[in-house]
């Protein structure tokens, strides 16, 4: 189930065995340890995982925006080209033009001192040699595209004059200004109300249909995954623990963590008189990782084999970082039968 290699079918983005370290006051910490994933053109890949599992760091590593962190191993290939550790000026021609990103918090992700029109014009002119007037025309178009009413008037608005949902729309407009081939959306709706979330996701889907942009959707909400994703990559403690098509992962999760995670979500029909199937304990700290399987301390199925580091194994239609599931993966039954 690995993306086929060879130039003809080379995926848009490929990340292989990525390691990322951060220098902190108390020494270096390894935020990513073995991240493998790929995204094909026009495809939607969801990255799910708990807080601190390394989802945002992966996105920042792709863009070369790690700040005080660095890629300490592995490779990132964009469009057939190795961009691991590319210089800032090389990456600048990729950022915004080929790969764009929307961040989680729309309230703080726009510069409060400039009009949204100004910021859109700026985003467009970074990669296009056009006059301010032409760029302004594009800004109005973009606002119209993302469903902001009265775009001609709204270009003059400042971020604080917009609601959270509208600001996220403006962020999307800015990200799409230069027709990128991949959009990285880092928890684009986490800060929004469910009703607004539904609007923003519908917008992203619509834009994808129109422009064919690939989507790397970072989220911790399995509901959003079900709604949007073609494939899913599950992160745990800086590693990919399971990856496969959305249907496979959501209906037949094989890694004990993925299964426990799906069970822990309250649903509209979860019986109220039963305990929630929670995962005991907490994610181990970055500087205190078990040497074997990183989920072992919380795993209900752990055995002696789990003290060994687990490789990401290729199974029939998925990848799993756990020795238990078999080829054909009929072995593990869902732990709790969820009523549908």
């Amino acid at each position: 189930m690995r993306a086929p290699t060879g130039s003809a079918n080379e995926p848009l983005l490929r990340i292989e065995d990525l390691h990322v370290e951060f220098r902190t006051g108390g020494g270096t910490v390894e935020a990513l340890n073995a991240v493998d994933l790929w995204i094909d053109a026009g495809e939607t890949v969801a990255i799910v995982g708990e807080s601190g599992s390394g989802k945002s760091v992966t996105a920042l590593a792709v863009l070369g925006l790690l700040g005080n962190g660095r890629v300490s191993g592995g490779r990132i290939t964009w469009n057939g080209k190795d961009i691991t550790g590319a210089s800032n000026s090389e990456m600048r021609s990729v950022r915004g033009k080929e790969i764009s990103v929307i961040f989680q918090d729309p309230m703080t992700s726009l510069d409060p001192l400039f009009t949204i029109g100004h910021q859109l014009v700026e985003a467009y002119r970074i990669h296009h040699d056009v006059t301010k007037r032409q760029a302004r025309q594009r800004a109005v178009e973009l606002l119209d595209l993302v469903g902001i009413p009265e775009p001609e008037a709204k270009v003059k608005a400042y971020p604080h004059q917009l609601s959270g949902g509208q600001r996220q729309r403006v962020m999307i407009a800015g990200a799409l200004a230069c027709d990128p081939r991949l959009l990285i959306a880092d928890e684009p709706t986490t800060a929004l109300d469910v009703t607004v979330e539904a609007q923003v996701l519908a917008l992203i889907r619509d834009l994808q249909d129109r422009t064919g942009v690939g989507l790397m959707l970072i989220t911790h909400d399995m509901g959003v995954v079900a709604e949007m994703a073609d494939r899913v990559v599950v992160f745990y403690a800086g590693q990919v623990v399971e990856a496969g098509t959305a249907d496979e992962i959501l209906d037949r999760p094989q890694h004990p963590y993925t299964r426990a995670l799906l069970d822990a979500i309250p649903r509209r029909d979860t019986p109220r008189d039963q305990e929630m199937p929670a995962i005991p304990g907490a994610v181990p700290a970055l500087n205190d990782m078990p040497s074997g399987c990183r989920f072992a301390t919380r795993c209900s199925e752990a055995g002696p084999e789990c003290g060994e580091p687990q490789p990401l194994r290729d199974l029939d239609r998925r990848q799993v970082r756990c020795w238990r599931p078999d080829e054909g993966h009929g072995v593990l039954e869902p732990m709790v039968e969820v009523a549908r």
């Binding site: 009703t195 609007q199 889907r205 709604e227 959305a246 959501l250 509209r268």
Partner: peptide
């Protein structure tokens, strides 16, 4: 509308019908 806007892990590829406006 609120109930209809909750994303569900069980509803694959089903877009919710968003409530209009804010």
């Amino acid at each position: 509308a609120l109930m209809a806007s909750i994303p569900s892990p069980d509803a694959h590829h089903q877009l919710r019908t968003p409530l209009a406006g804010e």
